[in-house]
Amino acid sequence: MGVPGLLGEFLRARRARLLPDDVGLPEYHERRRVAGLRREELAQLAGVSVSYYTRLEQGQSVNASDAILDAIAGALRLDEHEREHLHQLAAQRPRPQRRPPPERLDPLTRDLMRSLEGVPALVLGRRTDVLAWNALGHALLAGHLDRTAPERPADRPNLARMLFLDPHTRDLYADWPRKARAVVGNLRQVAGRHPEDALLASLVGELSMKSPEFAALWSDHRVKPCEADEYELRHPLVGALAVAQQILVPARAPEQSVVVVTTADGSGAENAIKLLAMRARD
Rank of each mutant, 00 (worst) to 15 (best):
L172A: 15
R178E: 11
A182V: 00
G74Q: 09
A240E: 11
L187E: 00
P254C: 08
L76W: 03
R161F: 10
H29A: 15
E57N: 15
L18P: 03
E206Q: 10
L200R: 13
P102M: 12
N134P: 08
L56Y: 10
L217T: 02
A277R: 10
R126I: 03
V130R: 06
V23W: 09
H235D: 03
L159K: 14
R99Q: 14
R12S: 03
A242V: 09
R17A: 09
R234I: 14
V3C: 09
V119Y: 01
H221A: 13
V261A: 05
E270Q: 05
V34W: 09
E27D: 11
P254W: 02
Q246C: 10
V23Y: 15
S61N: 07
P236Y: 04
Y231N: 15
V238G: 04
R31F: 01
S257F: 04
R114T: 12
V119F: 03
E255D: 06
L6M: 12
R114Y: 11
T262L: 01
R178A: 14
L199R: 14
C226D: 00
A280H: 04
L145T: 02
R98G: 14
E30D: 10
G143E: 00
P195N: 01
A277D: 00
V260W: 07
G74I: 13
A16M: 07
A180R: 05
A277S: 10
K274H: 15
S208M: 10
A228C: 09
A215T: 00
P167Y: 15
M278A: 08
L7H: 14
V258P: 06
H194L: 15
G118I: 05
V62Q: 08
P250M: 00
I72T: 03
L6P: 01
C226V: 03
A216D: 13
L163A: 10
P250N: 07
E230W: 07
D129L: 06
L19S: 06
Q60T: 06
D265Q: 10
S211C: 00
